[in-house]
Structures are given as structure tokens and as C-alpha cells.
Write a protein that binds this DNA or RNA. Structure first.
Lengths: 360, 360
DNA sequence: TATAAAAACGCAAACGATTTCGTGAATTTT
DNA sequence: AAAATTCACGAAATCGTTTGCGTTTTTATA
């Protein structure tokens, strides 16, 4: 339902985009366009007197250079395209925040687009951004994406690209991610040191770097602790939509709990899986951590307010965004002519809380 | 700490923004630029043969029109500026999601900027967006903002503007918000019907519409239930930063709980206040809802996983974003010549959970 | 006092696209 | 067969900037 309250109507003057241009100032001050431009750009060619007059007039009339024209002329738009799978996700929001901070500081605008995990839509986003004249692209690929050739061709055409969060070997460029292997390793180790032996792992059914890295970290921790990896303790959930994820998760949990040698702890690989898993375990009547412990990747600051407080692997999302943006801008501005591409992995850290502290 | 792994270095060819232009195609096909342009725009002036040739060549060479040039020429950029206080907030993320959905469907790009609750920074954002040639602006004003004259002057200059979430009377345009009064009224009524009598209210110390509307809803519910409003049961917290908010909240809670006639329930006005209040009450050792019940505005889908499950007033954030974007686009495209500005308030709804179900 | 050198400014091209108008050639009409 | 259309295309202006270079005026140098 919609409640509508009409405000008193009021005719606005239709005076399309009246923004004042160089030409206007030139006419008003009886000077040439180039003189105005040079004045505003503080050129040595212009006398102080003239500059002052121009500046004054410009300020008084709210002159601001047309970015489109400027961008067209300079072949730059001072804007950065950002492609993420979704906006509605706390980790991503934090990354975007970091990206925006650095971009704003360097007077770049960011244009954000969502791939919604679709390879096709992602390609459409990239296409749009490219034709929109962005100076570079920051991308965290959709989980569907397997073909990076389009991105590569744009790169070869001179477009700076930086990958963040979700990385791929299919393209050679700067990459900024979290140290997912170590994070997963630490989480699993934390469980082991807390006395858990049968540790299950819930992951996504994707080929994303973050998925395999976390799986590998989990396996390595088991190995280093002399615990045999059991494939029945690994379940991969569909990430296509929330419904499917939920049902897959519920199925996985029931599967785990009905194993003869059932797990005493679960390590979950992503933000969504972690929080939903906790919700589901509660709903199904399992007691955390006594029936089963839980630790997972997530950045929500509600972790400690959850029932029970959730142990988490925290990713430096904001910092990832910042660093990725910095890398991209340096690429755009070619601070180094022949960049040696780097892959940077920022450290994660464990926040141990009640969900991994049973009294056994 | 940073872990750096160098990837095998690989020289990329420096071929600055090689994007193919009309001129390139014209040269290659030995035709004029205008013929190319008309062909691609499917003009009747061009023969089918020529069109076909041009199309083919364009596709083969990944031609895509330069948005800057097009925008400059047309005086439009097919982009929308969005100004919010912060990206890292679940309600806002949902609104942005809604905005993006509609914008994408209408092939508009969105440029998102953060005001960080600062009036100055907000003005800078608007300025940047305007000079960037956006076709319109969607804005949820910073809580600091009191002066809307700049925005008004842009509007008078012909820039379409739509307010969302946080509304203001200082500017006459389309506005899309939640029905905060009713939401607050319902929340308070829910508490009263659940048997609570001494209901406190925690709000922000701002002049935001959402703050006063929610306060008024709270007061009205008390009035309608024959409960006297007691000013000592209203505390306003500083919203400037998380630290301050937390300390203000803790102070407020302790103040409440030490009143001789202390409250048996709290109604919190914003997402942040609600979740932090729950965290703090737990931390301070109060039992929810037996010591004190809690209901608050927030959209987090973790509400039911909290300890205890939190009763909430849910805002249709996604829909607000959608509607606001629709309104803006219709304004941009002037579907109606003389718009009658509307204020639309979308319904909220109560999700009653454990935090308001004590056994008294 | 010539002459060279600054200083201050304007002209015009360029960025890439759209669009109006003009111009031949092909086609149709009388 | 002459006239009138229609067709297919090109030239050039335009959007708002920036910038190299030319031009004029003033100032400094020999």
C-alpha cells in the first residue's frame, strides 16, 4: 500500500541545464574563451588582474567545468567503474566504502554496477563502463564468470583493471584479496585447539578463488594436525539465490548431524553461509556450541550480539577496497611505466566468541 | 601486515585507449563520419547495404559510442547521482540496490557518493555530480544539513532532484520515504499491547525528518493509549561517530535503568541505535525482555538470530530506492510537463520477536 | 633610439558524437 | 525526353573544454 500526500504544487521554471559555461563568462567579461579557461586554470599567460576578475565572476555565478567536455578533451573522465556481485552485503559495502574513500581523496568518481552473479550481466556492466569512458575498472568477478577474455581484450586495449576480493589467474594485473587460505587455516586451527576433532566445512559450489583457497586452508590445517580429511564433512551449497542457499544449507546440516561419526564443529566459508547457518542451527534445535560449534567468515558487527556470539574470520574489507583503489589509480596515472603486477593478500584475523567455546 | 606475491611480470602493450571511433570506421570503409553515425543509428537516409557493412565492421571492432561525447552533444549523460550518508549500512545498501535495479532497467548509470553526514562534503558531492553532468540527483540528506538553498538553486537551474528516506520541507520536489510516524506508532502500540507501560525512546539528536516523525509516532501512541508522555524517558544520542554513539547510548541506558520509575521497554529509532542498544543491554547484564523489552527500526536480516531475537520495525528500503529512482527518471524524461510533486510514504511493518515477549 | 624580449591575450584546432542542410545521382513522374 | 522526386551520402556546425601558436602591446636591453 502507498500513502500519498500531495505537496502544494508549484511550477518550476523549465530552463534546461542552465549551467554557466566558459563562453558565458567570456561574453560577460568581454574576453575570449581561452582567456577564461587559462585564468581558471591559473595559467602564467594571464595577468593577475584578469585572473581575479574571472575567478570572481566564476564563483559568483557558480561556474563549474563540464566534466563531460573536459573528459572528452583529455581522454580521461576521472571516474572509476566498480563491478560487484551485489550491493546488499555487508562485506561488499565495506569494500565499496574503502574504494570510495580513496577515490574521493584523489577526486575520482565511482560508478558502481551489480553483476548479480551473472556472467552475462557482468559483461554488460563492463561494456557500459568502458563505453562510458571510465579511466579504469575495479572488479570482483561474478561466481558464474569463467571467461575472462573480454576483460583481457579491454586490458590489452589499454584499460587499467584491478581485481579485488575474488581473484582469478585468467588475467594478469594487480589483484587485492584477503589471505583466505590463512584465514581458513586459522579458523580450523582455532577449532582444533579448542578441542574439536570432527570439523565439517560448508562452502559454495563455485569455482571462486575465495572458495578453493578457504577449502585448502581448511584441509591444510587438518593435515598439519594429523586429522584425516573426510569428504563427507564437506558440503557445497548453491549460491544462485537465497531460497536455494537456505534449502541447501538445511539439507547439509541435517546430513551432517545424521552421520554416524557426526561433526562437532562447522567452519563456514562465506558471510551469508555463516549467518544463515547459525540461524538454521538454532531453528533446528541444535545448541551451539555444545551440540556443534561454529566459526565462519563474516564481517557483520552484529556477530557478538548473535545467539550465541559468533566466532568469525574477519576480512579487512575496507582496507581491501582502499588498496585496490590505490592500485588502480596508480595504474591509471602510470606512476610506473611498466607495472610489475602484484597480488596482495591482506591478513584476516580470528575473533573467537562463544560459538566455539563449549564446555566439553 | 601485507603478504605480497609477485605474479610473473608481463609487459602490456601501451596503446592508450584504443577505442575505435566513428572516424576510424569512416576511414576504414572510405565513408564519411556522418554516414557511419547515421548507419549505426539506423537512419532512413542510409542504404541497407551501407548500413550492413558499417554494422559488421563496428561489431567486429567492438565499437561502442563514447558516452562523454554523446553526453556532451545531447546535454544528457544517462547517469544519476546518488548521495547518501554512508555506504556501510544495511538499510542504505538495500535502498541503493533498489535504485540500481530501476536505473539499470532504464539504462542509467548511477554514481554514488557519500556525505558522511557532513553538510560540507554533501555540497561537494552535489557540486561534483552536477558538473559531472548527471541528469538528476537522488539524495538522502546528511543529518548535519540545514541549508537546502544550494540544492534549490540547482533545481531552479533545471536539475531534477528527488529526496528519499530522509525528507525535508525545505525543497519542493518528489519525495519518497517510509511512513515513519506510523511505524513508530505501531511499534509503540505493539509494546503497549504486549503489556508494557513505561516505554522509553532512544533517538538521534538530529533534526532529521525520520527522527521527529518517529518521535511523534511514539508520542501519539502513548496519547491514544492514555499514557502520559514523560520527557525523562526520551534520550537523544549523538550520531557523529560510532564511539560517541556508543557512549551516549550506554549513558542513556544506565540513566533509564536507574530512574525510580524506570522503563520496562525501549523503542529505538534507527538501525544503528537498535542493534547497539541490544548489544549494550546484553553487555550491561540486563535481560531482554524480562528486565526490559526492546523494539527498534532496523532492516538487518540477522534480527531473528540475535540474542534475543529482536522485534523490529522493517522499512521497505529496496522499494523506496526503486520508487525514488522511478520518480527521478520520470522527472528527467519529463513524462509529465508540469509535475505535481508528490511525497510518497511507504508502509513499514512490525516483526514481533522474542525481545518484546516477556512473561510478566 | 632601435631592437629584443616579455607579457597578455585571442584564434583555431581538437576530443567524438549528432544533426541540419546541401548536393549529386538514380529513379520516377508527366 | 524533360522535369520532378527520391535516394544516398558528405560538409560543417555544435556541445564545452584545453592548448599550441600567433599577435599585439608593453617593458627591458643594447
Amino acid at each position: 500500500m502507498i500513502i500519498i500526500a500531495n505537496s502544494p504544487l508549484h511550477q518550476i521554471e523549465i530552463s534546461m541545464n542552465n549551467s554557466v559555461t566558459l563562453k558565458d563568462i567570456a561574453k560577460a567579461l568581454n574576453l575570449s574563451i581561452s582567456t577564461i579557461s587559462k585564468s581558471l586554470n591559473d595559467s602564467y599567460e594571464i595577468s593577475i588582474d584578469t585572473k581575479q576578475k574571472v575567478m570572481e565572476y566564476a564563483q559568483k555565478h557558480h561556474y563549474s567545468p563540464n566534466r563531460l567536455a573536459k573528459g572528452l578533451k583529455e581522454g580521461k573522465s576521472r571516474s572509476i567503474g566498480v563491478v560487484v556481485c551485489s550491493l546488499d552485503n555487508n562485506v561488499i559495502a565495506q569494500m565499496l566504502d574503502g574504494i570510495d574513500t580513496v577515490s574521493s581523496d584523489n577526486s575520482y568518481q565511482i560508478i558502481i554496477m551489480q553483476s548479480k552473479e551473472s556472467e552475462k550481466q557482468e559483461a554488460a556492466c563492463i561494456e557500459l563502463l568502458y563505453s562510458g569512458g571510465v579511466d579504469g575498472i575495479l572488479i570482483s568477478p561474478a561466481c558464474e564468470t569463467v571467461d575472462f577474455s573480454y576483460l583481457r581484450s579491454l586490458q590489452e586495449a589499454g584499460l587499467p583493471i584491478v581485481l579485488f576480493d575474488r581473484l582469478s589467474d585468467q588475467i594478469n594485473t594487480h589483484k587485492v584479496g584477503a589471505d583466505n587460505f590463512q584465514g581458513a587455516y586459522d579458523a580450523t586451527m582455532h577449532l582444533i585447539k579448542s578441542g574439536y576433532k570432527n570439523i565439517a566445512h560448508l562452502n559454495t559450489n563455485t569455482t571462486l578463488s575465495i572458495a578453493t583457497e578457504r577449502l585448502n586452508g581448511y584441509k591444510q590445517a587438518l593435515k598439519d594436525s594429523g586429522i584425516a580429511y573426510r569428504s563427507e564433512l564437506l558440503r557445497s551449497c548453491d549460491y544462485s539465490d537465497t531460497q536455494k542457499l537456505n534449502s541447501d544449507l538445511e539439507e547439509a546440516i541435517l546430513y551432517f548431524m545424521n552421520l554416524t561419526d557426526k561433526p562437532d564443529a562447522i567452519f563456514t566459508a562465506t558471510d551469508q553461509i555463516s549467518t544463515r547457518c547459525l540461524t538454521l542451527l538454532n531453528k533446528l534445535g541444535y545448541h551451539i556450541p555444545n551440540d556443534i560449534a561454529l566459526i565462519g567468515f563474516t564481517n557483520t558487527d552484529l556477530a557478538e550480539a548473535l545467539s550465541p556470539a559468533l566466532s568469525t574470520v574477519h576480512q579487512p574489507a575496507f582496507e581491501m577496497g582502499q588498496l585496490a583503489a590505490k592500485k588502480l589509480i596508480s595504474l591509471i596515472e602510470r606512476k610506473d611505466q611498466h607495472p610489475e603486477y602484484e597480488t596482495v593478500m591482506l591478513e584476516t584475523y580470528i575473533k573467537a566468541r562463544a560459538s566455539t567455546q563449549s564446555n566439553h
